[in-house]
Design a protein around this nucleic acid. Sequence first.
DNA 1: TGTACACTGAACCATATGGTTCAGTATCAA
DNA 2: TTGATACTGAACCATATGGTTCAGTGTACA
Lengths: 119, 119
Amino acid sequence: MVQYQGVPLDASFAAISDATRRGVLEQLARADASITDLAAKFDMTLTGMKKHVSVLEHAGLVTTEKVGRVRTCTLGPRRLEEETAWLERYRRQWDARFDELDRVIEGLKRKERVHGQQK
Amino acid sequence: MVQYQGVPLDASFAAISDATRRGVLEQLARADASITDLAAKFDMTLTGMKKHVSVLEHAGLVTTEKVGRVRTCTLGPRRLEEETAWLERYRRQWDARFDELDRVIEGLKRKERVHGQQK
DNA sequence: TGTACACTGAACCATATGGTTCAGTATCAA
DNA sequence: TTGATACTGAACCATATGGTTCAGTGTACA
């Protein structure tokens, strides 16, 4: 099986499998924000939001920097390129698989016709 | 915030956040398989593999049909289109965000130059 | 008929997840 | 210096996850 060497697909797909975290990413795409900002926006405690941000940070999707009291969150370096690539490859395989099935079915139909003629 | 009405992004992203399940999908892209086949391929008990297949099935990524003793697993109807769309939209926002940052930085540099001249 | 096979469900286990509260620490501002 | 703000870490909770074993049920086949 393919090993996806060092590519943390697990971590990033898990990170974006949560609606709150997807929302945080979209928010940060509009503007940087503090933990307090995000906690307010998503109606959650600071501690709760901190955990979500940590998950996103570990997945490389967000970077943070603390200046004074405030930790500012920014979109991280990763653009979900490997994830997009995986999905696109999967879709190509999916298409290929169903094209193949179509051919198999066509083959069966053809055989059926021949069979019918032989009767 | 966007609501993704009825679109089970959570379920599908969670489903593909597991390496075993991604492997199962790739396997099924090559050929249909029984639970026993998959369990053997991924060195797992039947019960364990059944659970993974159930997760994929609930996410609409796999369909199964039991004939006699054997449950055959096939790629499901969903091609991860919504998921791909979400990722692509995110990447566009990411790009836009960093273009904007570039402009801001350019602006600061320009100001800095003007400031320097005023001294 | 009897035996082997393929799956299924229940129960269990360890760990992770998504949240909270509470008790800090550090910083800002008056 | 005092008080408010912003975060952080520990502890806790309920539930989910990823796996197992064990005890079935139903099917195929000699």
